[in-house]
């Protein structure tokens, strides 16, 4: 009646190994199914257009828009260097490079501005009692209820020469000539901060809300001044939120289209406008594609550097 094979240790450990295998496979498969819908969307509407863009950037422009199916590196060459029409000599093309660096500068400035404005806001909300926080978060998300285009037009009306701000200042006798803000870098800068501030506040709030207030008390108890509590405890612990917020503001800011178009008046171009023009009036799809890809490369490079540096920083504490 006894079946010694069944109770021998080898067979038991074999069974356990089998069970482990099955368990591991089950866990893997479950994850894959969960991932699938997202993968399909990203593949279809993310990677495919990206591939098309990549292919187009290596073609020649068609005369009425579109592309001609002839391989060419002209788009990239044109971006960086200028070919003299008379003697074919090459010189760096500062026009595009300066649009790029202006965009990076503006977006960086707006990110910094949003961080400086957003941090106290997020901290304030996070320190409110739980039932009041939702109200404040609602206020933060309120702008999303209206289209960005309309909000930007509204801003235009406020800051233009005959706008609310200038009229009020003139009526109060503080200035006698309107301050020109509209169609300057300042206007674009303010517009960017305004448009993307919620994207800064929300992740900041998310990480500040998790912050254990007892840690702050512990730091005070260990002789930290208010400033030290901020720099040694609150900021390091809010770092994930700060990084997320900065990425969420910097990247869309860099590719912003509506804001520089309306508030910069089409004179102060950012990369987004430059790219849009190539697909519109300039009818140079390959060049637009190349510019878009260069933008992407720059962003990815910046992120890569940041993540590398960030990871190192975290390890060293």
């Amino acid at each position: 009646m006894v079946a010694p094979a069944d109770i021998s240790p080898t067979s038991d450990s074999q069974k356990l190994a089998r069970a482990r295998q099955i368990d591991a496979r089950r866990k893997r498969n479950t994850r894959l199914y969960l991932l699938l819908p997202g993968l399909v969307i990203i593949g279809l509407f993310g990677l495919m257009p990206l591939s098309i863009t990549l292919v187009y950037s290596f073609l020649k422009p068609g005369s009425y828009g579109g592309v001609e199916w002839v391989f060419s590196l002209d788009a990239y060459v044109q971006f960086f260097v200028e070919r003299d029409i008379f003697d074919d000599t090459l010189s760096p093309n500062w026009a595009y490079i300066s649009i790029f660096s202006r965009s990076i500068g503006l977006s960086f400035g707006a990110t910094l501005g949003a961080l400086i404005l957003g941090f106290p806001t997020a901290y304030y909300i996070a320190s409110k009692p739980a039932h009041q926080r939702n109200f404040w978060l609602f206020l933060i998300t309120l702008p999303f209820w209206t289209n960005l285009l309309i909000r930007t037009y509204a801003m235009l009306i406020i800051i233009r020469d005959q706008g609310v701000i200038n009229l009020a200042l003139m009526n109060a006798g503080i200035i006698d000539k309107p301050i020109s803000i509209l169609y300057t870098d300042t206007a674009v800068f303010i517009g960017l901060i305004y448009s993307y501030l919620p994207f800064m506040v929300l992740p900041l709030y998310a990480s500040l809300e998790k912050l254990d207030l007892r840690l702050i008390e512990a730091a005070y108890d260990l002789y930290a001044s208010r400033f030290k509590v901020l720099t040694k405890i609150i900021l390091p612990l809010a770092k994930p939120g700060i990084v997320a917020g900065c990425i969420l503001v910097f990247i869309p800011g860099l590719g912003a289209y509506i804001t520089p178009e309306l508030l910069g008046g089409g004179k102060k171009l950012m990369i987004g406008n430059l790219i849009a023009i190539q697909f519109g009036s300039s009818r140079n799809w390959p060049f637009g594609s190349a510019a878009a890809l260069i933008l992407m490369a720059v962003v990815m490079l910046a992120l890569l550097l940041y993540v590398r540096h960030g990871a190192k920083g975290a390890r060293h504490g």
């Binding site: 254990d212 007892r214 512990a218």
Partner: peptide, 13 residues
């Protein structure tokens, strides 16, 4: 004066 907190309140970072 220093405190040992009930939940320890160690700095996680």
């Amino acid at each position: 004066v220093n405190t040992v907190f009930q939940n320890y309140a160690l700095f996680p970072h």
